[in-house]
């Protein structure tokens, strides 16, 4: 493969991976908020979150492989996982390597989720919130074509979406009632729903 093709592939996979990671975070916070997507049952949102995350992991893998294989810049296989050891823009590439490490951790713990205690899985999964800014800053600093134009606009739009989703998740978490009070809330809601002739039982234990 020619160097130019590798370079284009590298930029494209990186860019699309960032967009998919954004989508993963938005879907993940939707799961966290017990939200629905039009036409999808609630478990469908969970599956979509997982599948989009797996797809973005695949693209990140492609992004890393093309960067290593491309001989135009000096990024070795070790530099792709060991932060700040690359010959080419060590700081920028290092942030990317850090993001790759975190993504690997999140990926492996999620694949093993059935076998891990929730106490271990949950905090590791929360590090995905750090993963996105790392990846985005890596993109902005390592890439040569994010200085302006519609690509930069796309990155900014992704940042806005991630920030909105994170804040919404935080707000939901803060608004969540303690379990001991949920039964009473649900009771009041059901009684009110029946009195008004609405369908009852929309209460969410989130």
């Amino acid at each position: 493969m020619t160097g130019a093709a590798l370079w284009y592939l590298n930029r494209a996979t990186g860019m699309v991976a960032l967009v998919l990671m954004t989508l993963t975070i938005v879907l993940g916070t939707t799961v966290r908020r017990h939200g629905r997507l039009p036409g999808l049952p609630r478990f469908g949102v969970v599956h979509m979150h997982r599948n989009v995350a797996l797809l973005s992991a695949l693209l990140v893998a492609g992004h890393v492989v093309t960067a290593v294989v491309d001989s135009y810049v000096d990024i070795g296989a070790t530099a792709a996982v060991l932060p700040f050891t690359a010959g080419y823009r060590p700081l920028a590439v290092g942030l990317g390597a850090l993001a790759v490490d975190l993504a690997l951790l999140v990926l492996v713990t999620s694949l093993l989720r059935d076998r891990l205690p929730r106490r271990l899985w949950a905090p590791v999964h929360l590090t995905s919130y750090a993963l996105w800014p790392l990846a985005a800053v890596h993109g902005l600093t390592a890439a040569s074509d994010l200085g302006g134009g519609w690509l930069l606009l796309l990155v900014l739009a992704c940042a806005a979406a991630t920030a909105w989703a994170s804040l919404a998740a935080l707000a939901t978490r803060r608004a969540a009632r303690p379990p001991s009070e949920r039964a009473r809330d649900a009771m009041a809601e059901s009684v009110a729903a029946f009195a008004a002739g609405r369908p009852a039982g929309r209460y969410r234990n989130g």
Partner: peptide
């Protein structure tokens, strides 16, 4: 009984209050 739900499992938290409200009617 519905009010005594620990509020942890969806079927209990959504189901019992609904049944209790219906029983009132």
């Amino acid at each position: 009984l519905a009010g005594e739900s620990a509020g942890q499992c969806g079927p209990c938290l959504n189901g019992l209050p609904r049944i209790a409200a219906a029983m009132d009617l």
